[in-house]
């Protein structure tokens, strides 16, 4: 008797729970998944400044991949993404290992390494634009030390400007990578390290043979997160180089914004957004699956 009453009450509350969750579920289905399909549809239509339902097949993709600006955006993402992921993970790992040596002032170092993550990418771009300005910034500093022929004007050079984006992005998020790796290091059981030490292994050997292999899941996570940040980078590049000189530092995010909202080529913009989604899936999903497999 009491049991069935409880079940009935539970049943009513179960309905409330379902009702309370449904707005979020509906919002996710509509604002994420239906919007993705909608963008797919837009990319197949002759939509320009206004959306249109005039179906034109893959013509927008033809235009997209016929555009040198798009190819430049893709190769920039490759250069920037590859270097940024590798360097920020390397610096993050190094700093985490250093901080894991029972350091005095560990908290303070952490605060300093991580504060750029709390700052807007736009502010980061503005600051580095100033620091990389050839007339005032790093080039001027080094020249004032006596190296009067020192050259460091990457930010004005169409072939080199993309590397300044790497510098600023590494500055902003290496501390984040450090925090991820430090959490990973602290998660390794001290017992296996102790066991290796008893077996006579030196510090370097312990890191190579014991600690780094145990950090594999952390590497996956760090890779997924930094690759995601690279693909999404937008405000940083806009504020640092404005996508220039010319369009030499355009990446897909900038290309998509310009074509969709400035040039009124919505169909091409939608197509570029879908290629971005595909890139994200290709880069990130295999790692997520690999990571899941490891745990089984």
């Amino acid at each position: 008797m009491a049991h069935s009453v409880m079940q009935r009450i539970g049943g009513k509350d179960q309905v409330i729970a379902g009702l309370m969750l449904s707005p979020t579920v509906l919002a996710a289905i509509f604002f994420i998944y239906a919007f993705i399909l909608w963008t797919v549809w837009l990319s197949l239509t002759r939509s320009t400044i206004l959306p249109s339902n005039h179906f034109i097949g893959l013509a927008n993709y033809n235009d997209l991949f016929g555009s040198s600006r798009w190819w430049r955006s893709l190769s920039n993402l490759g250069i920037f993404g590859g270097l940024y992921v590798a360097i920020s993970m390397a610096i993050g790992l190094l700093l985490a290992i250093l901080l894991d040596q029972r350091i005095r002032g560990e908290r303070l170092f952490q605060v300093v390494f991580l504060y750029p993550m709390a700052i807007s990418a736009v502010v980061t771009g503005v600051a580095w634009r100033w620091l990389l300005d050839p007339n005032f910034g790093v080039q001027a500093i080094v020249r004032s030390l006596g190296f009067t022929h020192f050259q460091f004007a990457w930010i004005d050079d169409p072939d080199l400007a993309i590397y300044t984006v790497v510098i600023a992005a590494v500055w902003q998020t290496s501390g984040f990578m450090m925090a991820i790796f430090l959490a990973g290091l602290r998660g390794i059981s001290p017992d296996i390290v102790k066991a290796a030490r008893i077996d006579g292994a030196g510090t370097l050997r312990i890191y190579r043979r014991v600690i780094l292999p145990n950090l594999a899941p952390t590497f996956f996570v760090a890779f997924i997160l930094s690759a995601g940040l690279a693909i999404k980078a937008f405000g940083l590049i806009i504020a640092l180089t404005g996508g220039g000189p010319g369009y030499s530092t355009n990446v897909p995010t900038i290309f998509m914004y310009v074509f969709s909202f400035e040039r009124g080529e919505m169909g091409v913009g939608a197509a570029s957004a879908l290629i971005m989604l595909a890139i994200m899936m290709v880069v990130v999903v295999p790692f997520v699956i690999l990571d899941a497999r490891r745990k089984v």
Binding site: A28, I32, W38, S260, V284
Partner: peptide, 22 residues
């Protein structure tokens, strides 16, 4: 539902800008 939301944290937002603007 959990996985639907989890994926929602991964997508680049460029994918929803145009429908949202509309």
């Amino acid at each position: 539902i959990f996985y639907l939301l989890l994926l929602g944290t991964v997508f680049p937002f460029q994918i929803i800008l145009l429908p949202m603007a509309w």
